[in-house]
Each structure stands twice: as C-alpha cells, then as structure tokens.
C-alpha cells in the first residue's frame, strides 16, 4: 500500500494539537472554565502533547515514504509485483 498511514494520522493529531493549544492559550487563566479539570489548563498541556505526537508521526511517515520511493516495489508472497503510482 503506497499511502503511509502515519502521514494523515500525523497531520490530524498535529491539527487537533494546534487547535487545543491555541484555545488553551486564549483561555489561560479562566478559572471557571478549568474548574472541572482541577485548575489545570488541560487544553494547553494536552494540545502540546498531541502536537508533539502528531509531528513525530509526520516526520516518521515522511522518512518512510522517502525510503519507499528509493526501493524497488516489494514482491508480495504470491509473487505478484505491486507497482507504485
């Protein structure tokens, strides 16, 4: 399969991370909003974690994609050669 899953997955988590981080920054210090999460700015912190995860996935996916392009198509067990696009 020539779509490396880590790329869309990385993109999604990076975007979610950015949204949460920005929203967390904008609402930082809003005591009423963060009363349920025990006063912790859960949006900001978890947004940063998800962003880091997303970017790592993106980087790994990009690296994998590059390596895949260099290699000849991998033969599958029944001998059919899958050609890339």
């Amino acid at each position: 399969m020539n779509l490396d899953l880590r790329i869309p997955m990385g993109a999604m988590f990076t975007l979610v991370g950015v949204i949460l981080t920005v929203f967390g920054l904008a609402t930082n210090g809003n005591l009423r909003l963060y009363a349920p999460s025990l006063g912790i700015n859960a949006n900001l912190w978890w947004g940063l974690v998800l962003m880091a995860f997303g970017l790592t996935m993106l980087a790994l996916g990009r690296r994998g994609q590059k390596r895949l392009e260099k290699l000849p198509p991998e033969p599958v067990e029944n001998g059919n050669v899958r050609r890339g696009h």
Binding site: M1, N2, L3, L5, P8, A11, M12, L15, V16, I19, L20, F23, N43, H85
Partner: peptide, 24 residues
C-alpha cells in the same frame, strides 16, 4: 465551536483516508 471543530476534523480525515485509498 472548538469541540465541534475537533469532531468535524476527525470526520474529514476518516473520509479522506477512504477517498485516498479508493484508487488502490
């Protein structure tokens, strides 16, 4: 709107993966 954006984003990616795989 933040909650809805996240939910919508997820749906977009789920469907996007489906469309990207269709040609395979």
């Amino acid at each position: 709107y933040v909650d809805w954006t996240i939910m919508l984003l997820y749906f977009v990616f789920v469907l996007g993966i489906g469309f990207a795989l269709k040609r395979h």
